[in-house]
Design a protein around this nucleic acid. Structure first.
Length: 145
DNA sequence: GTTCTAACA
DNA sequence: TGTTAGGA
């Protein structure tokens, strides 16, 4: 039996105001406004400049990464630069995994990640396993269930 | 109660 | 970067 995981969660609906984002990340609201002024981060477009800022989940991730890097000793501009390069790595990883990942299968009562065809002839499938904190791989013939 | 901008004992 | 003023 094969399970696929559709997009069940809409992360665009995860929005926060400045006080919430500040508490979530440990970055002061003063800092968040300053970072925005420097174009290091951005709030969701505000129609009225005097209206409260709204941040999305993506910005939460960005702020979290910058904060972590600062705690590790990076200065703000360097932290932002590294955050942006990290985001490129994350984006690439996501695309690769999205392309490779083809759902979860139960084989002999065990959960397997279907990682796509192993060979060009499409006779074998690469499976990933995760057990006791370790990953492993198995190549199996195509599952005909 | 929260967030806004601007300014600085 | 913190804090405060005065409004929304």
């Amino acid at each position: 039996m094969k399970y696929r995981i559709p997009n069940l969660v809409n992360f665009d609906k995860f929005v926060f105001r400045i006080g919430e984002l500040s508490r979530m990340t440990g970055v002061s609201s003063r800092q968040l406004r300053y970072w925005e002024q420097r174009d290091y981060i951005s709030a969701i477009t505000r129609d009225d400049q005097n209206k409260a800022r709204v941040y999305d989940f993506h910005t939460f991730i960005q702020v979290s990464i910058i904060k972590r890097l600062q705690d590790e000793g990076y200065r703000l501009p360097a932290a932002v630069e590294k955050m942006r390069s990290i985001q490129k790595e994350i984006a690439l990883s996501r695309e690769f995994f999205k392309a490779a990942f083809d759902g979860v299968e139960v084989i002999d009562g065990q959960l397997y990640l279907n990682l796509g065809y192993f060979d060009k002839a499409k006779t074998k499938v690469l499976y990933g396993r995760y057990e006791n904190g370790e990953t492993s791989y198995e190549v199996r013939p195509v599952n005909k269930d």
